[in-house]
Amino acid sequence: MSRLILLVIVVGLISGCEKKVKPLPIFGQREVVNGDTVYHHIAKYQFVDQDSAIITNDTFKDQIYVADFFFTSCRTICPIMKTQMLRVYESTAELPDVKLLSHTIDPEYDTVALLHDFARKLGVSSDRWHFVTGAKDSIYKIAQTSYFATAMEDKSEPDGFIHSGAFLLIDKQQRLRGKYDGTKEEDVNRLLVDIKRLRKEYE
């Protein structure tokens, strides 16, 4: 009898494995409008990148992108995040539809010139990795309401800000499809796998 149960479990497991890979979750609230499901998506934005180019939602039209929030003078988690984001940058080099978007949460200090210098020192190109600045309130608002990431000023913190080290995976319909800890190598490995999974949805 126990053997039979074991057999059933094993067969169940094997057939479970053969199923199609589950699509990535779609984060946020959804509502049904006229019979169609409308998902949470990234709100309209307009920022300026390290080359003074205007960056809007249209910049990432038909693109998958990974977003994060940082500032250049941060000495706590940001250097780790940038090391990990650089890994993402390097491992997606051959993927024409994958881009990166880093928002500064200290736009008063992180000017376009400074972001330009930062990107140059990191050795990355602006056509694949945009470092953007803009109105502080707009950046904080989009972080919290669109990307579900923490970003705000806090004078009691050592660097003057609190922010999460999250990397956010956005699909071609501007929907949030994954959230990863950008300070943890294993979690960023998961992101790299998920980028491939997400690209498969569009094949």
Partner: peptide, 11 residues
């Protein structure tokens, strides 16, 4: 970095 390799021309 733990590897001592720094980061680009930043560190």
């Amino acid at each position: 970095q733990k590897s001592g390799k720094g980061l680009g021309l930043l560190y």
